[in-house]
Every structure is written in C-alpha cells, then in structure tokens.
C-alpha cells in the first residue's frame, strides 16, 4: 500500500532529515513511528500524503508516486491529522468543518450529510454539530479535526500525535476509535511520544534515529529490546522493563500486560513456595 524506497529528505536550509529510508506498509497494518525529538518522525509522516516530496529515492502510495501527485488528490486515499487542530479550523459550525474535506473531494450532497453524521457519532460530537468549533475545548477541537479526517473515509489514516494534550480518558477514547478503524481494515500510521499507547495499540513499531530506521518490527519484539531503544533515547513501558529484567533470570517469557505478569508471578510463587494469595 505504501512503499518507501531509499527516501531521503533535505530541507532547503541544508538540514538532512531523512537518510535512505526504505520500508513497506501493507493494507490493514497499525504502525507507530517513535523516536526522540528531531529524529525525523513528522518529516517522514508528511511524505505519506505528499506534503513533502522526497529529495532522493521515491515514495509510492497506492502505486502513485508522491512526487508526481498533488496532496489534494492524495487526500482521497490518505487522511492526515495534524498536531494542532487550530491550524485547520475555520468554519462557523462543527458540521461545516467536518464537511469541508468532503466538499473538496466533490462528494454528493446526501453522502456528505451521512458521512458527517457518522464521523461525528464516532467521536461523540453529535450534540455539538451546530456549535462554533472555536468555542470548544482543546480536546473537543482535536476531535473535530479528527472527525473531519474520518469523514473522508480514506483507506490510510496518518496521525501526528493524536493524543497530545489529551487526558488519559480522552486518549483512550481516541485510540479505541483508531483501533476500531484498524479492525475495519484501515491502515493506520501514527507518530507518538507515548510509549504506553504505542505498546498498547500498535502492531508494528518503526523506531527512527537521526533520520534512519533504527528498528522496525512487531511491537512485542521492539519493546523487548530496551538496550537498543535506550540508544535512541527511548524507554519501553514499565511492564516491558520488568519482564525484561525477569527474563535475564530465565523467568516469565513474553509478558506484555500487567494481568499476564500477575498471573505468571502468582503461578511461580505458588509453584516454588506453596504460597497462596488471595
């Protein structure tokens, strides 16, 4: 679905941000791109819908070369949620804001109404469709922005820190929606600083370091290598750290959730000392 071949990107000021990046993303994947600040995450993300064109190598999205395709055309295939919702909100009602993208890709009127409603429902905005988006809270504005992307019903959804500035409950709500979309067959690519969320939701993780791919693999295997992550300035969630430390003593293989850890620990204690808990 997305194919990157030796993608390089140098900003006009000579800042070489991406160096020879190659990977393939298949339909239905759920990918988190992680890395420290300045590692090139957002720059890479902007290549997926042609906002930035590779200065070397090539990027194919649905077989289209992004260098030759306009972003406004790629918008039919790739939805892109930005970090700051205020960069896009300009309509006087939430409804119009969500419908903006649909009008751009010339959707039929009845379809627009239907799709706006559907997107709003998914993000809990039904009651706010007539309010002015600028009077909403930051979290709500972020959801409006997300809904306007959802309404486009693209096969690929790209998210740049979708949970930034959201509290735990809001984050989980957004991520559950994203997971649901993924289960419906949509390809999800997100950048995040939140290792917990990346571990909890993504199926594959790409670690960027200084504009190169440092690690690319299944979430469990990436998170189970704290030493490699540390050299990228990252730290896996605590449960992975704990499991990693136990593993050094030959205990508890492949534990990724607190529940699993508890169960294994319990079994181990019962087995060795005949202690029963509970």
């Amino acid at each position: 679905m997305i194919l990157a071949e030796n993608v390089c990107y140098t900003y006009r000021n000579g800042n070489n941000v991406l160096k020879n990046i190659s990977f393939e993303i298949k339909k239905g994947e759920f990918i988190a791109i992680i890395g420290s600040n300045g590692s090139g995450k957002t720059t890479l993300l902007k290549h997926f819908n042609g906002l930035l064109k590779p200065t070397g190598g090539k990027m194919l999205v649905n077989g289209m070369d992004t260098r030759k395709t306009k972003t406004s055309r790629l918008a039919k295939y790739v939805g892109f949620l930005f970090q700051n919702p205020d960069h896009q909100i300009f309509c006087s009602t939430v409804y119009d804001e969500i419908a903006f993208g649909l009008k751009n890709i010339s959707t039929r009127r009845e379809d627009i109404r239907q799709r706006v409603k559907k997107a709003a429902e998914k993000l809990g905005l039904e009651s706010l469709l007539d309010s002015n988006p600028l009077t909403l809270s930051k979290g709500q504005r972020q959801r409006v922005a997300f809904a306007s992307i959802l309404a486009l019903e693209t096969d690929i959804i790209v998210l740049d820190e979708p949970t930034k500035g959201q509290d735990y409950i809001e984050s989980i709500k957004i991520m559950d929606t994203v997971r649901e979309l993924n289960e419906q067959g949509k390809t999800i690519i997100m950048v995040t600083h939140d290792m917990e969320l990346a571990a909890l939701y993504a199926k594959r993780i790409i670690v960027l370091r200084n504009g190169t791919i440092h690690l690319d693999g299944r979430t469990e295997s990436v998170m189970a290598s704290p030493e490699i992550l540390a050299s990228s300035g990252l730290k896996p969630p605590q449960i992975y750290m704990l499991s990693y430390m136990f593993r050094k003593y030959g205990l508890f293989w492949n534990v990724h959730t607190v529940e699993d850890m508890f169960r294994q620990l319990l079994a181990h204690l019962e087995g060795s000392k005949n202690v029963s808990i509970g």
């Binding site: 902007k46 819908n49 906002l51 306009k70 972003t71 406004s72 055309r73 918008a75 039919k76 790739v78 939805g79 892109f80 930005f82 700051n84 960069h87 896009q88 903006f100 993208g101 751009n104 890709i105 306007s148 992307i149 486009l152």
Partner: peptide, 16 residues
C-alpha cells in the same frame, strides 16, 4: 511558518 502549517493542514483535506 504558521501559514505553511495551515496550508498543509487544508491540503491534506483535499483543498486545492
């Protein structure tokens, strides 16, 4: 810079 950000955000929604 801000203008570029806004431009990119709208282009991502199919704005030409």
């Amino acid at each position: 810079d801000e203008m570029n950000q806004v431009m990119q955000a709208q282009m991502s929604r199919g704005y030409n």
